[in-house]
Design a binder for these strands. Structure first.
Lengths: 217, 217
DNA sequence: ATTATCTATAGATCTATAGATAATGC
DNA sequence: ATTATCTATAGATCTATAGATAATGC
């Protein structure tokens, strides 16, 4: 029966509801990007151009909305990473490409990246999002003999932290060449993972895939 | 005249005032460590065991208190770092020692470290605190030919980010051997800065100074 | 006498909900 | 007929201050 069918085609009503939810999450991201969590629900619904009462159709509390906002950003980032590394075989190159492309992503959607920065190193211990992917990349590179490190987990925290540092730098210095800076840092991280300077620099000067279209965000 | 003398000996009244201020900052740190900034001033003064109205003798707003709390943690951290590296000549070793000791610090004052983690990579672009010191260490090591990297600033963001990642890991995994893990990560960062694996591992297995006494925090 | 603390409270703000309105489904 | 949105509001909470109390200085 229709009540059990989980995959009903979304109706127009569903789409309207989704639009309202998306507007709330988008507004929450804007506040989050500036670290402004001490805003009232009224301010959020005003920013989202949504009636105040509608908030409670979607979220129980401000905290629930902010959590959903972070998750939504992570979802976009994971989709970005998956698209970008598709087609690479060498796990070290998968790692390098996603690192290099993430730096470039900052110039494309700085607001979204700021939400990640606001979340800080906590993103690295979440069990969803980028941490499991990066962990998997690093483990694969160790198995393939490309990385020489004692612990994948430690490598994840080091590389993930360095990546956040890179994003913070790019955010603070709008005039820097994001690609150049990202490539340099990626090479140094690879060197820390046991690659020679030559191999690391070489891997970080190869052609990159096209930037995915993220204009809908 | 006495009103111009900036360095009057602190009177008992001054000390009482300082105690109240310290109690407020300490309570703010506890909330900050758990990311709970959405607390009322009443909750803060209750936690500090201080009368509600006293808050306004010291701070104009909740935000001002939280900012002062972060600064006070950074002050302690800088003092810790300065004490720990005193007596080392080699700038690479200064860097290694402060990195290795900071990991161990997490087990000593986890609450305080959590305040730093909550601040995230923003600490790396503050013009006071650890960033200028670390930047100076890295520049000195580059000049001395110990580090081979293109940009000290980039090195700061990579190493600082990795350090935050280390602290996050230690916070999330209480059973890890903090010294062991910190030494491993420090060595990998040094490798990324151009040192050979052997030199890096060697530098990270040397004796360390005694942990400074931080029991007053 | 001076200064900081405390308690009490007025007014502002914020949350959660009730009930009305508008949009969509059938 | 159903569902989501909107507006309005009661009650809760929070902030900032006034005035009383306690501690210290001289």
């Amino acid at each position: 029966m229709s009540t059990e069918a989980a995959a009903e085609r979304p109706t127009r009503l569903d789409r309207r509801k989704e639009r309202t939810r998306a507007a709330l999450i988008s507004a929450a991201c804007e506040f989050l990007a500036h670290g402004r969590t001490a805003v009232s629900i009224q301010q959020i619904t005003d920013a989202a151009d949504v009636g105040f009462g509608s908030f409670y159709n979607h979220f129980d509390s401000k905290e629930a909305l902010f959590e959903a906002a972070v998750e939504s950003v992570l979802d976009v980032y994971v989709a970005f990473r998956d698209e970008v590394v598709a087609g690479y075989e060498d796990p070290a190159e998968v790692f390098a490409v996603s690192f290099r492309m993430t730096g470039r992503l900052q110039r494309q959607i700085p607001e979204m990246v700021r939400v990640l920065l606001n979340e800080g190193t906590r993103v690295l211990t979440r069990d969803k999002g980028l941490a499991p992917r990066a962990m998997h990349d690093i483990e694969a590179a160790i198995s393939a003999g490309r990385f020489d490190i004692e612990s994948a987990r430690l490598g994840l925290m080091a590389a993930g932290g360095a990546l956040l540092g890179l994003l913070q730098l790019l955010d603070a210095e709008p005039d820097l060449d994001a690609g150049e800076v990202a490539d340099l840092m990626t090479a140094r991280v690879l060197q820390g993972f046991g690659m020679s300077k030559e191999d690391a620099d070489d891997l970080c000067s190869r052609d990159l895939p096209a930037q995915p279209d993220l204009s809908q965000f």
